[in-house]
Amino acid sequence: MDARRVSLTRYNERTKQYLEVLRDIDLQVFEGELVTIVGPSGCGKTTFLNAVDGLVKLTAGRILVDGSQINGPGPDRAFVFQNDCLFPWRTVLRNVTYGLELQGRLPAHEMKQRGQNIIELVGLQGFAEHYPHELSGGMRQRVNIARALVMEPKLLLLDEPFAALDAQTREFMQVELLKILARAKTTALFITHQINEAVILSNRVAVFSARPARIKEIIKVDLPSTRALSLKHEAGFVEIEKHIWRLIEEEAVRPDMLAEA
């Protein structure tokens, strides 16, 4: 993915005011890479991700995926939503195959087969016929990820997918996600407001400034490529974490923002 001088200004109909959300963002994600975006809350991280998915229009600049400019949602990108947003009336399998169903290119049995494969990949074998309300939060997020992966996207977009999970499940899911992405060989752009989550997951971390969001710094995470949770206690990890903290602290001047981060 290649974002070039991306800017976005939004008009609020109620207050009749323009709000500059993104300013001149340049960001590349190379094949096989996982890049994380962190930044103070409300800085426009999610808006940027929505723009990459094609759900919102840019004011200026352009975003290319695999060399071609994006223009609305497309099969080369798939989105993993913050609240899992699974359709409660569909079973796990039918939630996972939803995107394929919309495309209507595959015959039913092939769709089902691909759905089953991905369900196994995310570790949910045996739950294909369950309804979402019968699953735990962590399992629902696996379905959410599977629903995106089944599309075999060039770029996976993840919007704080673990924000609603409890602390333990969250840590466990971070490692799981890395395994899943390695197995699926997918490039990913991940948003979080948790700094250690960003560091443990990424090859690079892009730190956004407060609104209007600009790229403050891009940090390369020089840590072994197979990551374990124990890494979080090592000196190198903690060093990067502190550095990012300082960058965000400079941006998050308001005490309520500090509390939230």
Partner: peptide, 12 residues
Amino acid sequence: ADFIKVARSFGA
């Protein structure tokens, strides 16, 4: 609204 967003994102 979330469901509509999901559907749109998957190209509905």
